[in-house]
Structures are given as structure tokens and as C-alpha cells.
């Protein structure tokens, strides 16, 4: 099954079976939980400073310039 076929199949099934939203909720919340733990561990007490350095290095922000696409 191609990925797009899966998207269509899942949307149709989701429409008929709203209980599928429960597994979507679990996925979303597990992603958020993992992300919080990972970055707390990575950036420690100087969270903002370290986070900005990390984001800047990856081109996600440009402190002092403007690049946020």
C-alpha cells in the first residue's frame, strides 16, 4: 500500500470510527512527552541560552538577523 493510499484509507476509517482519535491522541502525547524529556536533558539549567544556540546552529532561528522560515 502506498503512503497516499494509507492516508485515504485512514481518513475514511477515521470518519466511520471516531474511536481512532484515541490512538492519534496517544501518538501526539507520546511525541510531546519524549520531546520534553529529551530537550530538558540536553539543555539543562540554562535552557533558553542552550536552546537558542541549538536552534541557531540548525538554521531554525537567526539571532541578530532575520531568518525564521
Amino acid at each position: 500500500m502506498k503512503e497516499m493510499d494509507y492516508v485515504i484509507f485512514y481518513a475514511k476509517e477515521m470518519n466511520k470510527h471516531p474511536e481512532f482519535f484515541n490512538s492519534q491522541k496517544k501518538l501526539i502525547e507520546s511525541q510531546i512527552k519524549s520531546s520534553i524529556s529529551l530537550f530538558k536533558l540536553m539543555f539543562g539549567k540554562n535552557f533558553k541560552l542552550n536552546a537558542r544556540h541549538y536552534l541557531n546552529q540548525r538554521g531554525l532561528i537567526k539571532i541578530g538577523g532575520i531568518n525564521n522560515e
Binding site: 471516531p18 482519535f21 492519534q24 491522541k25 501526539i28 502525547e29 510531546i32
Partner: peptide, 11 residues
Amino acid sequence: INRELTELDYF
């Protein structure tokens, strides 16, 4: 939409 709120919605 017939679903429960997620942590993303609360955010």
C-alpha cells in the same frame, strides 16, 4: 469534531 482534547490542543 467528535474527539477528546489532546495536549497539543491544550497548548
